[in-house]
Design a protein around this nucleic acid. Structure first.
Lengths: 214, 214
DNA sequence: CCAAAAATGTTGTAATTACAACATACTTTC
DNA sequence: GAAAGTATGTTGTAATTACAACATTTTTGG
């Protein structure tokens, strides 16, 4: 099990190596590997497992009955997912989680939180709150990316956010075209077309998933 | 200050009246009143205040430079807002919060959490986690409501959620037409038009904010 | 290196939406 | 209860998007 990534995670911030090892046991940590395209959770499932990505990435998405996909979030190495469902153990998942690449996931049992001492639990809960509140901001961000009515507006909203995050006008995005289209809720072909126009208009330059804002 | 509503809130679940009174002091609880249309927070502000609605309602929204409004959430009596920003005290708000009706808000200082005992803090943090995780599900829901490309799809997605929540095919929604349009990210006139068509098609019946799914 | 598969880009047409302008209905206030 | 103000509904036209079909480029696996 790849411990080093978990040691630097938000969840274990402030805990030393010994404490982390104990917590991993207390929370029944289990690691599993998934191949690209595999479904890790399906809509309707119930879980109490907080999930941590140690390698690769997963998409949190919704797939409707007509085959339309909406990507809510892409979760990469070092990040958590399913925390809301893990902490609200009655609520069935509204989303699917799929391996966007080959990946490894560590599952941590949240119902085991109850067994911890108040002190440790308070520390862990504080970190969990950081995870959930940041996730909230992520979901809000996506709302702003999909808010513009026109495709160009959505693309620019998204690229601006990434640019600010990376402190640079030039950056890679974690999505391929189809994923970006499903994240922004637009047609893939319309997205490709608009990206071409934006390059012709001198707004951006891009090649594959590398972008530059001009 | 209207304590009774707070006593039944998620935040103080499991606490008795005495404890709640102490916590209110410890968290510097302050109540303020706002008239409809007043701005309570503006994008860019920083706060450590967890906000609780004791009367009326507020909208959490984003207003871009062209005057387009996106309503992320409507927060009613008995609910909380700004919890993410209160708990991440470095992060400037990405949204505005406006009084949707005349309302009263209680502000609770989250930086004061540090002064509480481990036991009390653990209990409070657990409740805060419930608030943030539920808020997450709310934000996810909105994503599903705005995911359909067509207006009718968005309306149906939204109405279905409410119908399931209220266990009835007949219900009131908390939005007027303009608010619903801004929540679903569609033009108000297009929304009105589509609602008319849906009534003609025998899908729904509605009058003002009362709806029936057929 | 080649063939096959996957990803990305391009184009045209039908359908949908944006936007503005206006009509009607409902509320509020005096 | 009239007038003013606000909310909601309707309509037409220009602009945009959906969708399908196909072209081109890139990646993958022998």
């Amino acid at each position: 099990m790849d411990i080093s990534v978990l040691h630097n995670s938000i969840l274990f911030k402030g805990f030393d190596d010994t404490e982390i090892s104990e917590l991993m046991k207390a929370l029944n940590a289990v690691e599993k590997k998934y191949n690209k395209g595999t479904m890790i959770f399906s809509s309707g499932e119930i879980t109490d497992k907080l999930c941590f990505v140690t390698a690769g990435s997963v998409t949190v998405e919704s797939n409707d009955m007509w085959g339309n996909r909406t990507i809510l979030n892409l979760v990469g190495k070092g990040q958590f997912f399913a925390e809301s469902y893990a902490l609200l153990p009655d609520v069935p998942m509204l989303v699917d989680v799929c391996a966007a690449e080959d990946c490894s996931i560590i599952f941590l049992s949240m119902k085991s939180l109850a067994n911890l001492s108040d002190t440790v639990r308070a520390r862990l809960l504080t970190n969990l709150l950081t995870i959930t509140t940041r996730k909230n901001l992520h979901l809000s961000s996506r709302s702003f990316h999909t808010a513009p009515r026109q495709v160009r507006g959505r693309i620019m909203a998204y690229l601006n956010t990434i640019s600010v995050q990376k402190h640079s006008r030039e950056f890679d995005i974690p999505f391929d075209r189809q994923q970006l289209a499903d994240y922004l809720n637009v047609e893939r072909s319309v997205l490709s077309n608009e990206l071409s126009k934006m390059q012709r208009d001198g707004l951006i330059r891009c090649r594959k998933n590398h972008f530059e804002i001009i």
